[in-house]
């Protein structure tokens, strides 16, 4: 039982980080109708940004996380303006393919740039807080606890922002209909930029939060990116609430799967494959996802 609890709590922490990555991907998808295949590399970039803010500039750990989110927001805004925005002009044919190729190109570019600039060896920023919370049989390192708490704060903040603020409602309006939003005076182009910046910031924040728990490496974003794809399909493309639920669910399933399946090599491979299988089945049987909003279908 205590083993189960340990696995479940760790799965929950990882699930919250997944949810954070996926909510950024969802935000970008719902507003721009673009799946950002470079999302994982932004997660990686966020991790390194906070590492250098903390170790080189001597910022406190949580300020490093905040700084990484700001840096990634700016990066996302610039990338959207320079590379994605031309998609909405007539000069670009095959818009779907364009978006996939440039964002996937970003992954190739950033992952390899990471290898050259940051080096292939794992780096670890200092802990948020040394030690662990011991509660009966449950041992939870403070790093994980703090990452989980910050992730929850960010997810709640995002939800409130989207529901209660004018900018958030404008984003939601564009996600529902570009044309209608434009009619009531919202500039969709501006919302695309804001959404891509926020999505990048959320990925970067997740990378910065995970940094003290798992070490940083240039390819650290590959796996969370695939997980985020799975989550947003499961949660219904474009539904932020759905990605939060999907993220936590996937984290739990994988945490428990690795712990309970007999052969560790197979367990690791098949818990990952299981997520991918969920994606495949969901797309085939219920393309709006488990928690999807039907108006967000692209087809």
């Amino acid at each position: 039982m205590s083993y189960f609890l340990l696995l479940a709590v760790n799965g929950l922490v990882i699930g919250l980080i997944f949810a954070l990555v996926a909510s950024g991907l969802t935000l970008v998808f719902s507003v721009l109708k673009v799946v950002n295949f470079g999302h994982g590399s932004l997660y990686m970039l966020g991790g390194y940004a906070s590492y250098y803010l903390i170790t080189a500039l001597g910022l406190p750990s949580l300020a490093g996380v905040a700084g990484a989110m700001i840096a990634l927001f700016l990066f996302g805004v610039v990338f959207e303006r320079l590379v994605i925005a031309p998609m909405y002009t007539d000069r670009v044919e095959r818009k779907d393919e364009y978006a996939i190729i440039v964002t996937f190109g970003l992954t190739i570019l950033l992952t390899n740039l990471g290898l050259v600039v940051f080096g292939p060896f794992a780096k670890s920023p200092p802990s948020f807080m040394a030690g662990a919370l011991i509660f009966g049989p449950l041992i939870l390192p403070y790093d994980r606890l703090i990452a989980a708490i910050v992730a929850v704060v960010l997810l709640v903040g995002l939800t409130v922002f989207l529901k209660r603020t004018a900018l958030g409602q404008a984003l939601d309006a564009v996600s529902q209909s570009r044309e209608s939003a434009a009619v009531i005076g919202i500039d969709p182009r501006r919302m695309y930029t804001v959404a891509f910046g926020l999505g990048s910031a959320l990925a970067g924040g997740a990378g910065a939060l995970i940094a003290p728990i798992f070490a940083l490496s240039p390819s650290m974003g590959d796996l969370p990116a695939v997980q985020a794809f799975i989550i947003i399909v499961l949660g219904g493309m474009g539904s932020v609430g759905g990605s939060i639920a999907g993220g936590i669910l996937l984290g739990l399933v994988q945490g428990l799967g690795v712990g309970y399946l007999p052969d560790p090599n197979r367990a690791l491979a098949y818990t990952q494959a299981f997520g991918a299988l969920l994606l495949v089945v969901t797309l085939l049987l219920r393309p709006t996802g488990l928690f999807g909003r039907s108006h967000l279908r692209l087809e």
């Binding site: 799946v35 990952q272 494959a273 393309p287």
Partner: peptide, 17 residues
Amino acid sequence: RLSGPYLALFTLAISEI
């Protein structure tokens, strides 16, 4: 029935599996 990003995600998942 899948196209664009849906097809890309589907084939990505199949390939990973």
